[in-house]
């Protein structure tokens, strides 16, 4: 690890002030940042330890929703009685990721901001436009099994690797953000992560110095909630394709079908046209195919990851079949 200055923030104001430093970064659980600092992929000059600023609370909101503090651990969120009862897709998505040891440290904010697992990004001897703008993209003609089939660019085909945010996208949660000057803003999770475009170094909309303070969930929507993760081992592997689904049926037709997809793009993928196609219709293989056609309309493989396109279609079929049976 490169030398850095370590500062333990006691308040959010403290943290905001430290974050004004050049090359300052927040450290929460540390499970992604320290990994990348050991590899010298991340080389902050200053670390603001935000573990003790009091952002760990999970509390009810006035409108019946839930506010999950940025420093709440993934375990605390997954086992929270209200998350289990009212937002089971979120518990399931978190439990499908990483290991218990990692989830015990990983936090809401850190999980949202975790960086891609692209091998070239994680190896400083390789070209990577995300890590080293202008150096090229090693994955384009290389090992691209984990990479994107939707929304990629000629500059970067990396995927956002997380599970939790896929469920948050299906739930239409929001991210609360605090600026280093004390200003606050709220961004829907669906708009929090960026597509790579010609700024592949940009993972999300956070500006320098900004700190996530919480994620808020809207009032419970009920319905049948599922998280299906397809991976190379049955446990402890990143998603090749994952789907978070919240489905409701009445009189044999879909009345709600909020879906979000992981493993396919640089962000959790949400396409409102899929719900529009499903709602009002009775489940059938043809209908599921139509939903998959919409999802995969612009899908493009890069050789090694071509399999993700049929895999996403089949996973979508399986999820809609199971959800419509459970919801009926």
């Amino acid at each position: 690890m490169r030398p850095f200055q370590y500062d333990r923030a006691r308040t959010l104001t403290d943290a905001a002030q430290i974050m004004q430093g050049e090359d300052a970064m927040a450290i929460a659980g540390g499970t992604n940042l320290l990994d990348l600092m050991k590899l010298q992929v991340e080389t902050p000059r200053e670390l603001a330890d935000i573990n003790r600023v009091g952002l760990g609370e999970i509390a009810d909101t006035d409108d019946g929703g839930l506010r999950i503090g940025a420093l709440a651990t993934n375990t605390a969120t997954a086992v929270h009685p209200r998350v289990r009862a009212d937002y089971p897709v979120l518990s399931r998505a978190i439990l499908a990721g990483a290991t218990q040891q990692l989830r015990n440290k990983a936090t809401t904010g850190g999980n949202l901001c975790q960086r891609t697992r692209c091998f070239y990004f994680m190896n400083i001897d390789q070209p990577c436009n995300k890590r080293e703008p202008g150096s090229g993209c090693g994955a384009l003609d290389g090992i691209a099994k984990l990479h994107a089939v939707l929304g990629a660019s000629g500059e970067c085909i990396a995927t956002y690797p997380g599970d939790m945010a896929v469920a948050l996208s299906a739930l239409d949660a929001s991210v609360e953000i605090n600026g280093s000057d004390g200003t606050e803003r709220t961004v829907p999770v669906r708009d929090f992560h960026c597509l790579p475009g010609d700024t592949p170094w940009r993972d999300n909309v956070l500006e320098p110095g900004e700190i996530i303070t919480a994620v808020t969930l809207p009032a419970p929507v009920g319905g049948t909630q599922l998280y299906r993760k397809v991976r190379e081992r049955s446990s402890y592997a990143f998603a090749l394709v994952s789907i978070a689904a919240i489905v409701e049926m009445e009189d044999g037709v879909f009345t709600r079908a909020d879906l979000a997809f992981g493993g396919l793009a640089h962000k959790p993928w949400h396409d409102p046209r899929i719900a529009q196609a499903l709602v009002g219709n009775a489940p059938s293989a043809e209908l599921f195919d139509r939903a998959a056609d919409i999802l995969l309309e612009d899908a493009q493989g890069h050789g090694e990851n071509d399999f993700k396109i049929p895999l996403a279609r089949r996973t979508l079929h399986a999820v809609l079949e199971q959800a419509s049976e459970d919801a009926a």
Binding site: R8, T31, L34, D49, N104, K105
Partner: peptide, 20 residues
């Protein structure tokens, strides 16, 4: 793996300084 405040964690991915 060690147990910190009752929770198991990977001690390689955390700084000693973070455990005051």
């Amino acid at each position: 793996t060690v147990i910190v405040n009752g929770m198991r964690i990977n001690s390689c991915l955390t700084l000693a300084a973070m455990h005051e």
